[in-house]
């Protein structure tokens, strides 16, 4: 908190952080409303409370660095550049969705943004992130793989296989653990023998650090520093961002395993108002400026919902398309 914001980034970038966090929050809260109305169905895992991680981390990466995440990934996709309209349409199951309505909330993907997917098998993204890093190194592209995952994923074999593999083959993977303390209802110390997740990399000779995941500047600075370290050395690194989800695991979870006092305590650390206070205190924005940015986010989300509502359902013929690729079709056209 000591360093002044302006010493880190220009005003415009700082305001963008606020605007992006506001957009994430607005988007997620709107999703909850649309789920209640029955417009969004299936599983819905919301990100509210964790915005500082997606926003700070994405800003700390290069635009073409790969991003992979789990199933609580709407903000990662949107901050990387996915159109909120098409993300909302995906959640509505519409043909205009980012994956034509075939993936839904847990499977957002846009290779043109190097956003390489939301995965719904816990820990499934680890080897894929390692493979993308291998391809980048092999093709001498200089991009790294940023692999987001939750605290619940670190007891899957793929976490350990992925860490070992990335270090063994010297691959540029930045592992970013979003530790929100709960894998559904199981608190981290009830599932991990060593609950300090960042310390678990020592068995693989991979450096790591812990960062305040409720502070967008702290996340940004840590990821920026770590990603350059990874890029220069072709070596993996792990960041554990300590954060909190304000809602349950998914829409069906009332969150009874957490005391109201605990939730309230974390809400006092809400990344949005806290960052707003700093912006105002340091004379970067007025309350009015920030209210304007929030209103803008509300408008973007309202437009997204309208777009999703008005979009057509997928054609029945879509059921059979995309199982297999046609030969002769260009593979990975986004790499050109």
């Amino acid at each position: 908190m000591d360093t002044k914001l302006r010493a880190i980034l220009p005003d415009q970038e700082l305001l963008k952080f606020y605007e992006q966090m506001a957009l994430c929050r607005e988007f997620e809260e709107s999703c909850a409303e649309q789920y209640t109305k029955g417009h969004i169905t299936g599983f819905l895992h919301l990100y509210s409370g964790q915005e500082a991680v997606a926003v700070g981390a994405t800003a700390g990466l290069h635009r073409d660095d790969y991003i992979l995440s789990a199933y609580r990934e709407h903000p990662q996709a949107i901050i990387r550049g996915a159109d909120p309209k098409r993300v909302m349409a995906e959640l509505f199951g519409k043909a205009t969705g980012i994956c034509k309505g075939k993936g839904g909330s847990m499977h957002l993907f846009d290779p043109n943004l190097s956003f390489m997917g939301g995965y719904a098998i816990v820990g499934g993204q680890f080897p894929i992130a390692v493979g993308l890093a291998f391809a980048s190194k092999y093709r001498r592209e200089g991009r790294i793989s940023a692999c987001f995952f939750g605290d619940g994923a670190v007891n899957q074999g793929t976490f350990h296989e992925g860490l070992n593999w990335a270090r063994l083959w010297e691959l540029p993977v930045l592992f970013i653990c979003e530790n929100n303390f709960y894998g559904i209802g199981t608190e981290v110390h009830r599932s991990s023998a060593l609950a300090d997740i960042h310390k678990r990399t020592c068995g693989y000779n991979i450096p790591s650090e812990k960062v305040d995941g409720m502070d967008v500047m702290a996340v940004y600075q840590a990821v920026k520093r770590a990603s350059e370290w990874v890029r220069e050395r072709n070596r993996p690194y792990l960041i554990e961002a300590i954060t909190y989800r304000f809602r349950g695991h998914s829409m069906s979870d009332p969150g009874k395993y957490r005391s109201p006092a605990e939730v309230e305590l974390w809400k006092e650390r809400d990344p949005l108002p806290n960052f707003a206070t700093r912006l105002v205190a340091e004379g970067i924005a007025s309350e009015d400026n920030l209210a304007c940015l929030r209103a803008k986010a509300t408008a973007v989300v309202r437009e997204a919902v309208q777009f999703a509502e008005e979009s057509p359902w997928p054609d029945d013929r879509e059921v059979f398309s995309d199982v297999f690729a046609a030969n002769g079709e260009e593979v990975c056209p986004w790499l050109k």
């Binding site: 790969y66 290779p111 390489m116 499934g124 680890f126 080897p127 894929i128 992130a129 390692v130 493979g131 993308l132 890093a133 291998f134 391809a135 980048s136 092999y138 093709r139 793989s145 074999g157 793929t158 296989e161 992925g162 593999w165 593979v331 990975c332 790499l335």
Partner: peptide, 14 residues
Amino acid sequence: NSIVGVAVGAAMGG
């Protein structure tokens, strides 16, 4: 699992 998964990622990477 990673022998296959790393191949999945490498294929996505070209």
